[in-house]
């Protein structure tokens, strides 16, 4: 087989295509308002990027066309609740593009995953809006109403299964009395998993990060589960809930902020996996992907330095 020559735009485009299944599952279960979020986020990202490139005196067109800003916007848009008010996503994207990327000199120079930086910022600043997920299918017009504040969110929201389990555990309920099943979460995760496999097959991403991330997540949760099954949920629960698959295949694999050496990627992924479980179980927030990824972003230079491959003949 001939060695393929990809280009940066293609990579970004392929990643966006691969998101279709997961987003499709979101739409199927919770309605198309996530599309509104994606559009809002993309427009904001392009405008913010253009303004900043102008300020930095860089040619706008090629830099916008690389697709990275839109990808950041989409990842952020599908991570936040699809009924969050419009200004939440706009603020998040602005934060992601400006403080996550352009401040450091644009694509390729950012130490943090911009989408996750935006997400963490939103979660810390607007915890209420960021944890109100739609409880059921919401029609497009309903979605529009809620997003643009024309209607009240009351009655539409519910907690995610992760959130729910957490609250119940805090109230002292035993695991076996809690309903752990969530069909929607399962299928959304399956959607992202399939998309991820597509990327692996197209050789857009390498196996190391997703594989070791899932391994870390399984091992950590299995260890806890083994210690006390009445307090801790099973590995399966962690795999099928929250943004696990999205994180494994789309977020942690963001090349810019991840480790670049083959061994480094294994370490990087593994620790994100374990951190996700730890923060989910012991932390104060419902999901943990953003914090786990950001924490590991800090360690990337260190990991890269210590995992340089053995050079030929050395």
């Amino acid at each position: 087989m001939e060695t393929k020559r990809l280009d940066t735009n293609q990579i970004m485009r392929q990643v966006i295509y691969a998101l279709v299944l997961g987003v499709g599952a979101q739409i199927y279960f919770f309605g198309s308002s996530v599309i509104v979020q994606i559009i809002l986020a993309s427009i904001t990202a392009i405008i913010a990027e253009a303004v900043f490139l102008q300020i930095r005196g860089v040619k706008i067109k090629p830099a916008i066309m690389d697709g990275s800003a839109i990808l950041t916007a989409i990842l952020l848009a599908i991570s936040i609740p699809s009924i969050a008010p419009w200004w939440v996503v706009v603020l998040g994207v602005l934060f992601a593009i400006i403080f996550g990327k352009q401040i450091f000199g644009g694509l390729g120079n950012n130490p943090f995953n911009p989408a996750m930086l935006g997400y963490a910022f939103l979660l810390i600043s607007y915890p209420v809006q960021m944890t109100q997920w739609p409880g059921e299918f919401i029609s497009f017009s309903q979605g529009i109403d809620v997003i643009f504040g024309l209607n009240n969110v009351d009655g539409l929201t519910g907690a995610t299964r992760l959130d729910d389990v957490k609250t119940q555990l805090m109230l002292g309920t035993q695991i076996r009395d809690i309903n752990l099943e969530s069909v929607s979460q399962l299928w959304i995760n399956v959607g992202f998993l399939l998309g991820g496999i597509y990327l692996l097959l197209r050789r857009i991403i390498f196996w190391q990060i997703p594989f070791s991330l899932l391994l870390g997540l399984i091992l950590m949760s299995a260890a806890l589960f083994f210690i006390d099954p009445s307090q801790f949920t099973s590995p399966y629960f962690h795999l099928a809930n929250g943004a696990t698959m999205l994180a494994a295949f789309f977020i942690a694999t963001d090349p810019v902020s991840a480790s670049t050496t083959p061994r480094g990627r294994v370490i990087y992924g593994f620790f994100i996996g374990t951190l996700i479980v730890i923060i989910r179980v012991f932390g104060g927030y419902p999901d943990a992907v953003a914090f786990a990824v950001l924490l590991m972003n800090i360690t990337v230079p260190l990991i890269d330095f210590y995992t340089q491959p053995k050079v030929f003949g050395k």
Partner: peptide, 16 residues
């Protein structure tokens, strides 16, 4: 364009 640190170059370098 800017380097996106994708690491493709690492995988093809014959001297690692």
């Amino acid at each position: 364009k800017e380097c996106i640190r994708c690491g493709l170059c690492n995988t093809v370098c014959p001297v690692d």
